[in-house]
C-alpha cells in the first residue's frame, strides 16, 4: 500500500464516527422532518398517512387569518427581530466603543456585562418576571418614586412584547459587546490617526473608518442575532404566566407554536413539522444572503 493510500484510509477511519453521526443525527432527521410535515403524524397512532400537503394548506390558511394564533406567532417573531436585533446591535456597539475608549476598569466592565450571557435564560426569565410584577416588582417600585402609576408590563398585551424583548436584549448584550470589541480592537490605530490628521471629527471617524472596517463583524452579528430572535422560545415560555406566550398570544413565537402543536395535548406533529419547514426556509434565506455578503467582503 502506498503512503498516500494509507493516509486516505486514515482519513476515512477518522471520519467514520463523525460522518455517521452527522448522517444519523442531522441529515437523516432533517429529511425525516420533511417527511413528517407531509403526514398526519400523531406518534400514538399506528397509521401515519400522507395527507396531500394538508399541514401546509392549514398553515397557509392559518397565516391568512389575522386572528389565528399561528399568524400571531409569526407576526410577533418578526417584531422581536425588528425591535430586538437593531436595539441589541446599536446598544452593543455603543458600549463596545465606550469600552474601547476607557483606559482603566475595562476588564471589570467586560465581566459585568457578560454575566447575564452565562446565566440560563430560564433563571433570567424568572428573575425578570418578578422585576416586572405590578404591585411589588422592582420596576414599579422605581416608577412609583417618580409618581408614575403602576404598569402591568408582561400582563398587558400592549406592553408584553417590548417587555420580553428587553429581557432578551439585556441578556445577549454582553456577547454582542465582546464580539464588537474584538472587531474594534482589530482596527489598526493608524487608520484613526490618519483620519485625525485629515481633521475628521468624531462622527466622521465613526462613519468613515469604524463602521466600514467593522463591517464583517456587523454582518456576522446581524445574521447571528436575527436567527437568535427568530428562534426565541425559552424566554417567552418562562416569562408568560401560563407558559403559553400570553396574554392573548401577544408574546407567542413560531417555535412556541411548534412546541405546543407537536408536544401539547393535540400531539399534532405533522403541523408542527410544517411550521419548522417554514422556519427553515426563512433561516436558510438569511444564511444565503449572509454568505453572499461575506463573500463580496472577501473579494475586495
Amino acid at each position: 500500500m502506498t503512503l498516500k493510500n494509507r493516509r486516505i484510509l486514515w482519513a476515512y477511519l477518522f471520519l467514520l464516527i463523525p460522518l455517521t453521526f452527522f448522517i444519523v443525527v442531522r441529515t437523516g432527521p432533517t429529511l425525516f422532518a420533511f417527511d413528517i410535515s407531509l403526514r398526519n403524524y400523531n406518534p400514538m397512532a399506528a397509521d401515519k398517512p400522507y395527507n396531500d400537503f394538508a399541514n401546509f394548506a392549514r398553515l397557509f390558511k392559518d397565516l391568512a387569518d389575522p386572528d389565528h394564533v399561528t399568524r400571531k406567532a409569526f407576526e410577533n417573531t418578526f417584531k422581536y427581530v425588528l425591535i430586538g436585533m437593531p436595539l441589541q446591535l446599536s446598544i452593543g456597539l455603543l458600549f463596545a466603543m465606550l469600552l474601547n475608549t476607557i483606559r482603566r476598569l475595562r476588564t471589570l466592565y467586560r465581566v459585568i456585562y457578560f454575566i447575564p450571557f452565562v446565566t440560563s435564560a430560564v433563571a433570567v426569565a424568572w428573575v425578570w418576571r418578578s422585576l416586572y410584577m405590578p404591585d411589588f416588582g422592582l420596576f414599579n417600585l422605581i416608577l412609583e418614586l417618580f409618581g408614575v402609576p403602576s404598569q402591568r408590563f408582561l400582563l398587558d398585551p400592549a406592553q408584553s412584547l417590548p417587555s420580553v424583548t428587553a429581557v432578551v436584549v439585556w441578556q445577549g448584550l454582553g456577547y454582542v459587546i465582546i464580539i464588537f470589541l474584538a472587531g474594534l480592537q482589530g482596527i489598526p490605530e493608524t487608520f484613526y490617526e490618519a483620519a485625525r490628521v485629515d481633521g475628521a471629527n468624531r462622527w466622521k471617524i465613526f462613519t468613515k473608518v469604524t463602521l466600514p472596517l467593522l463591517n464583517p463583524t456587523l454582518v456576522y452579528l446581524l445574521v447571528l442575532q436575527t436567527i437568535a430572535f427568530l428562534r426565541m422560545f425559552a424566554e417567552v415560555v418562562n416569562l408568560s404566566r401560563q407558559g403559553d406566550g400570553g396574554p392573548v398570544n401577544s408574546t407567542t413565537t413560531v417555535v412556541l407554536r411548534v412546541f405546543r402543536e407537536s408536544f401539547g395535548s393535540s400531539l399534532n406533529m405533522g403541523y408542527g413539522a410544517a411550521i419548522t419547514v417554514m422556519l427553515f426556509v426563512i433561516i436558510m434565506t438569511i444564511s444565503l444572503v449572509q454568505m453572499r455578503l461575506t463573500q463580496r467582503q472577501v473579494e475586495y
Binding site: A11, L15, P18, L19, F22, I23, V25, R26, T27, G28, P29, T30, F32, A33, I36, P43, I227, L230, R231, F233, V255, V258, S262, F263, M269, G272, A273, T276, V277, L279, F280, I283, M284, S287
Partner: peptide, 26 residues
C-alpha cells in the same frame, strides 16, 4: 472530501427546532 464537507456544512443551515420532532420520535 468535498461531499463529506458539504454534508457537514449543510447541517448548519438547519435550525435545531426543525430536528426536535424527529429526534423525539427517534
Amino acid at each position: 472530501k468535498r461531499i463529506a464537507f458539504i454534508l457537514v456544512l449543510a447541517t448548519l443551515m438547519v435550525p435545531t427546532e426543525m430536528l426536535v420532532i424527529p429526534w423525539y420520535v427517534m
